[in-house]
Design a protein around this nucleic acid. Structure first.
Lengths: 199, 199, 199, 199
DNA sequence: GATGAATGAGCATTCATTCAT
DNA sequence: AATGAATGAATGCTCATTCAT
């Protein structure tokens, strides 16, 4: 039976939350453990009791955010049956999630990539997870004859990258237009790229 | 007639070269000015005589690399007349250039993004320059009736992002397959995305 | 009852002591944080844990020395009732204190002034505190009819400056005569300047 | 016959002027040779051709300013016959000169003292020159029976210091009242200190 | 479990001075 | 005489990590 969270778990959670805020505010390199400790209402030693080092905290956050986004995308996809509707749904979820959490998205898409080579492996894993999700649905569409055949690994990456870039551009723009505005064009492009009519 | 480079220009060049090597080896944050000085066979003070700070060196390199890549792509495009051939040519140039300079590409596509928020503006500028190049040719194709209409700004970003992601995946892979292998699928996808047949 | 000093307080004290020695030996600008750390048997980081920067250490020392000197002067003054005796007592304390701590006096009277414009405000504050002390007693003497009236603010500064200069001359002299030797003349001058007979 | 200044002399002069401006603006330590070079419309190498090092420039300026001030004071004194009038005249000259050249006075009275121990000897020399000037006139007054006897060396220092402090206080005050306002009180004090009536 | 203190390697930058041309 | 380049020692400060209590 799931007991109440132990005190340790609560503390751990508080640290993660604080770290997310600090990383989002400062970026990975600029974030100081001191600040995370203060923001989580703990001592520096306390933080190190729960996490072996700074990297581990960041990694934990990456994992958690990736899992969340994946789960949302999967759910949205599962709720639809039509392959085109699935594409639409997933795209919408991703765009909405990022639009709602700008600084988080920035951390995830921009800072994490260059946070240091130690993160490269993890980032590859995450990117591949998303690209793989797309690829799996492509494969299924291809199998069912909805889409013409294509190297789904590369295609998955490419489609993921296409969305990524549009979001990233929006992230780096100091005075960005609403992200939704990119939706129709992106949708048309993605559809056509898999052999469907834009509309 | 262009006179020989002055001593200062030669030195400046040597510093940039050395910096490129060091940045590629270590990433931006890990690169030490000391190492750049040693590698360029200069003193630290000498480096600072030619560049005001570390950032400026990195920025100079980014600019230079972006210009080079843009020029190559433009040239390849200009050499073709058929819109589809233009796409092929540009894609090929980009893939080939990155494939030939892996660590440079890594610096450019991966490290630079997260090098610190001071670089975000410059990165946006560079990404937009490439996306804009694609967008211009899309617009022309649309105007000539080759492609169906689309929001070319978003499409340019998306296509740039698609290529980017494929290259980035290859960069982060510690044991990557040849990058050319991705070419056919990427080509098919790009073609279809602008309303052309895959073949 | 005052508990024993905490470990932190002890360490802080040790750093201040070491800093005083180093500043006195080298002057403010030449003093290196490294040296202070070594001399206080701490690490550089340790010093920075207790003080935010070099300036703060120097400021703390200035404050402390000023307070000490002021307290001694006040005590000596309080121990006398006759206004002339008060002047004598204060003058004696100041001269004795400086004579006993030559390098400290040098730091205080010579180096601190030119340590950088950041210290100007603090130095003005300290000088004014001493001049103010003198001015207060002048005012009282004037009120009691012991001295003829005068602008006590200016007079306080002037008298402080007079003592200052005699001490400073002694400080800058590489082979100085005993400072006490200046006492009789200084005493006569100060007395006369406030309208009292030299003897 | 004094030929026109050689080009070298002109250049030397320009450097001194520029240096004065820079030192007055930044203080000794903060002043960079680079800035002096630029401000004197020369190259750094050029500056070093005319002066062996930074110290030498500062020393030259100190000498020149001290000589100027001394000369003015001597002239003012020589123009009077009455000893009291001489005191008044000299005091007035000093106060006026400093009031007219605030940043220069700051350099001279504040920064120079703490510019580094290398300047201590020179500063002692300068201070003693002024104190000596006062002492000489005191001695003459004593010899003529105008003033009661006193140790004129100490008295000279003290009187110089008194003026100094009043000026210094005015210099360090970010929002100072006119310096002349201190004149009457200072005058009364100085007169009394040498045994003369305040008025 | 938690804390405050302590550590120390690491680093960008400054600047007086030198010197080949 | 003059210049622009080059030098390199010097230094304040940061920060992830450790550890005694």
């Amino acid at each position: 039976m799931a007991r109440e969270q132990t005190r340790a778990e609560v503390r751990r959670e508080r640290i993660l939350e604080a770290a997310l805020a600090v990383f989002a505010r400062r970026g990975y390199r600029e974030a100081a453990m001191d600040e995370i400790a203060v923001e989580s209402d703990t001592s520096k030693g306390g933080v190190y009791f729960h996490f072996p080092n700074k990297q581990a905290i960041f990694l934990a956050l990456l994992d958690r955010m990736a899992a969340l986004l994946m789960a949302r995308a999967e759910a949205a996809i599962a709720a639809e049956t039509d392959p085109l509707a699935k594409i639409d749904a997933a795209l919408r979820v991703v765009l909405d999630t990022f639009a709602d959490h700008r600084s988080l998205a920035r951390l995830f898409l921009v800072d994490a990539l260059g946070a240091g080579r130690e993160f490269n492996a993890k980032m590859m894993e995450i990117h591949r997870a998303f690209a793989g999700l797309i690829a799996r649905h492509l494969d299924e569409g291809i199998r069912r004859g909805d889409f013409p055949p294509i190297d789904s690994r590369v295609a998955g990456l490419a489609l993921f990258g296409a969305i990524n870039e549009v979001v990233t551009d929006w992230l780096l723009d100091p005075d960005p237009p609403p992200l939704e505005r990119a939706y129709p064009a992106l949708r048309a492009l993605l559809r056509r790229s898999v052999g469907m009519p834009a509309e």
